[in-house]
Design a protein around this nucleic acid. Sequence first.
DNA 1: ATTAAATGCTATAAGCAGATATCATATATG
DNA 2: CATATATGATATCTGCTTATAGCATTTAAT
Lengths: 134, 134
Amino acid sequence: MNFSKTTSYSLSILSYMAINEDENMSAKYLHDKLSIPYPYLRQILTNLSHHGFIKSQRGRSGGFTFSKPKEQISIADIVATTDGLRSLSNCILGFKKCPFNKQCSMHSVWEKTRNDIVKILNETSLADIVKRAE
Amino acid sequence: MNFSKTTSYSLSILSYMAINEDENMSAKYLHDKLSIPYPYLRQILTNLSHHGFIKSQRGRSGGFTFSKPKEQISIADIVATTDGLRSLSNCILGFKKCPFNKQCSMHSVWEKTRNDIVKILNETSLADIVKRAE
DNA sequence: ATTAAATGCTATAAGCAGATATCATATATG
DNA sequence: CATATATGATATCTGCTTATAGCATTTAAT
């Protein structure tokens, strides 16, 4: 009942980077700060780089920086590259076909809450997260 | 972002059994009706039996029947034996510690929706599901 | 130049949920 | 009684996510 570790790590990384943009963001440094397993962290950083959220600087004193404005990166964008938003559009109980004859009160409740969640995911950018962290 | 297959299958099985209580519920029969992989279905039935929701009758023309009133089996009870309700109490983003400084709008939204969901899970019994299916 | 410290790339391992397979045991039916 | 059809119990396989490892390449600092 939550997002995958890969998604969770991605969100941790990008929100930390957004809040502390002055620091030099190498994989090693992020590993020390966020306690994400180093080799796994590197894979995720590569993935985030490939998806255009951040860009890398190789070589000594290299690292990662944002490659577009933080206003233009929503949580939904990040989730979409890992778990995918589709994971939110499925039945909360995991059914393909509702076995409860459509009268299932689950579905209506979940539909509403799901919409609330997706709305927040879409409306919250990394810039918003920075604001709230201040 | 939804319950595990084991939970989903468990809910399918018990709700089908509740709605069609007149039929002879063998694993084979349930497999035909619900298209759950047969050996996996058998494991789940054993698990549901161990947890006291149903009891088994061995031998030819055997099968499974409820071992307590359907009014006394809530969806939450079923989820608790598989995924566990704890899966609902965690941060939706998968964080142990909120990296967003508590101001995270995620958390308040998720807390409310989570409470809504748990409430429904607790208040909906198999008997209710039968009523709604009629 | 040489070295240290960083990312790029990719192959592989570990762990878990989901799924399968098999044999033992029980029992209704003929 | 013999047999077909159930469940009981348990070992194993598989595929995906999570995690690790190692070598190549780039670049700053000395």
